[in-house]
Computed example of a mutant assay.
Amino acid sequence: MAQANSSRVIDTVSDAEVVEQASLALFELTLKALSASRQLSVLQLRVLLAIEQHGPVNLGDVADQLDLSKPSASRLVARLVDDGLILRRIPETDRRQVELAVSAKGRRVLGSLHRGRQRKIGDVLDAMSPDSSEALIQGLLSFAEAATTTARR
């Protein structure tokens, strides 16, 4: 029994290494799309994506989600506000809070980045056999679902 468990641990580590390598390849495609746009740094993109996914949010939420200090998050947000990518709003329900939301310009920039990344990913998928790309897609769907479930715990 211990043998089977230790062998599965080895397989899990090996599997995790494979997934890590694939995630690094995806990250590299993201960086290429980002550098092609020449509009945002990686940190600015993380802030914009966090606000897009969870917004509207306040500055503390952004700092917490990205594990940044509030002063660092504030500087990043201020730059994105100055660039017109994020809107600051004071909600009617609590005038002491400031909500951050992605602006129309920010959504256009993110849309362009998403499309650029999807084109690069599409090129990679096209280079794969149909069976392999289908298996990858099914596996990634399952992985994303399990990651969401695990994150909730």
Rank of each mutant, 00 (worst) to 15 (best):
L66N: 04
V62K: 00
E52N: 12
P56A: 03
G55P: 02
P56N: 04
R75H: 14
V77D: 10
R79W: 10
Q44I: 04
G60P: 01
P71G: 08
V42S: 12
L43M: 11
V47S: 02
A50R: 09
K70L: 12
R46Y: 08
V62A: 02
L43W: 06
S72M: 15
L68A: 05
Q65V: 06
R79C: 12
L76P: 09
V62S: 00
V57K: 05
V47M: 06
L49C: 08
L59T: 01
L80P: 14
V62P: 02
V77T: 15
S74Y: 11
V42R: 14
P71L: 07
L59P: 00
D67K: 10
L66F: 04
D64C: 01
D64I: 02
A73I: 09
L45H: 04
A63H: 05
L45G: 07
R75A: 15
L76R: 14
S69W: 08
A78D: 15
Q53C: 08
S72Y: 14
V47T: 05
V62Q: 00
R46I: 01
R46T: 07
G60N: 02
L45N: 05
A78G: 15
P71V: 07
V62Y: 00
S72W: 14
Q53G: 11
L68S: 02
R75F: 13
P71S: 11
L43F: 09
R75E: 13
E52A: 11
G55V: 05
K70H: 11
L68P: 07
A63N: 03
A78V: 15
L43P: 08
L40F: 05
N58G: 05
A73T: 12
S41L: 06
G55I: 03
L45I: 04
L68D: 05
P56R: 02
D61K: 05
L48H: 06
L40E: 01
N58C: 01
V62H: 01
D61V: 02
L76S: 15
Q44C: 05
L45W: 02
K70F: 09
H54E: 11
V57P: 04
L66V: 01
S41R: 08
A78R: 15
S74N: 15
H54A: 10
G55H: 03
L59M: 05
L40H: 03
A63R: 04
